[in-house]
């Protein structure tokens, strides 16, 4: 070994010193990567496998008391609570994502015009995003409060009906139907007003973030394209429809993925405002997983629930990639 190495060293001394330098660089490089990777390995990668193991157990304080195989999954799939939580999560996602993206695209596009005080607006829009969720959710819970909340006070002044907002489990279409004297069938009840109230809060929090990202995306569109189109006589709407929308699509696509995943993770504000109630009106999958673990100590079952939620997210992400990804224009 040593004689071989010295032989090589004698033959090509320059190369070996370079190789040695490379070797040292690689060693040092791994050393630099080590702390971050150790933390991520223990607290991100390993828990995935460990969670899979826990999900096959009747898990107690002392560990895996009994191997259940896939029984936890079978139980979850036959549990109406699980399906209901997925439905609530899906409604939350389907309503809140277009609402958020629509409003923030509008705001970003307006901000992108020749506007004074652009950065001030941006700072103010961004404020809800940086404040502690628990604090702003408490403030909103107070705004929504049925007897002394500001929203109902304003409704009273305007002569509008006062609602229970976060405390209202009935579906929105049921309520509209009742107001008009029509009985709406149960399957058409729509999302509960409690959930819609939470969606409104979510929109308030994330519009600023989405606007900032959209603004960055708008800044990346080459200005010459607008100039050229203007010379060809395009009007404002045409510029927006045929230049902005297609060239902004990578940003929109990113935000779409990010927002959908965000709605599936939503927890803090829902827990603070309603704890999943009234009844199970706002029990999203994330809330259900937490309740099963925190209140009932059903670790195995909640691990199984989280794997089911993860597979749903994975499927949606793949579908989005397939269909929305195809519409993305890369300039």
């Amino acid at each position: 070994m040593t004689s071989q190495a010295t032989a090589v060293a004698q033959q090509r001394p320059f190369l070996t010193s370079r190789r040695l330098r490379k070797l040292r660089e690689a060693g040092l490089g791994y050393l630099f990567l080590l702390p971050a990777f150790v933390i991520l390995a223990i607290f991100e990668f390993w828990p995935v496998f460990y969670g899979a193991y826990i999900s096959t157990c009747n898990w107690t304080v002392r560990g895996c008391a009994r191997q259940l195989g896939l029984a936890n999954y079978a139980r979850a799939l036959s549990d109406p609570e699980m399906w209901h939580s997925l439905l609530v999560t899906a409604s939350y996602s389907i309503i809140s994502v277009p609402l958020q993206l629509g409003i923030s695209l509008l705001l970003a596009y307006l901000l992108f015009q020749q506007i004074r005080g652009k950065s001030l607006y941006r700072v103010l829009f961004f404020m809800p995003y940086i404040t502690a969720t628990v604090a702003s959710a408490s403030v909103w819970a107070f705004l929504y409060s049925p007897d002394r909340g500001l929203i109902n006070e304003v409704a009273k002044m305007l002569g509008l009906p006062q609602l229970r907002w976060l405390g209202e489990p009935r579906g929105i279409f049921t309520m509209i139907g009742e107001a008009m004297g029509v009985t709406v069938p149960a399957w058409l009840a729509g999302p509960s007003l409690a959930l819609l109230s939470i969606i409104l809060y979510t929109t308030w929090v994330f519009v600023g973030y989405d606007t900032v990202i959209f603004l960055a995306g708008l800044g990346n569109i080459p200005h010459e394209l607008y100039e050229a189109a203007k010379i060809d006589g395009a009007n404002g709407w045409q510029l927006f429809r045929w230049i902005t929308i297609p060239l902004l699509s990578p940003t929109t696509f990113f935000l779409l993925l990010y927002t959908v995943i965000g709605t599936f993770k939503a927890f803090n504000h829902i827990y603070v405002m309603t704890m999943g109630g009234p009844g199970d009106a706002t029990t999203t999958a994330s809330i259900l997983i937490f309740q099963q673990m925190y209140q009932y100590n059903r670790y195995g079952y909640s691990a199984a629930l989280s794997f089911i939620l993860f597979s749903v997210i994975l499927v949606i992400t793949i579908v989005q990639n397939r269909f929305a990804g195809r519409a993305v224009v890369y300039a």
Partner: peptide, 12 residues
């Protein structure tokens, strides 16, 4: 990796 997937094993 969504945080919900790892929260149970992490807590354990």
């Amino acid at each position: 990796i969504p945080s919900d997937l790892t929260i149970v094993p992490k807590a354990v």
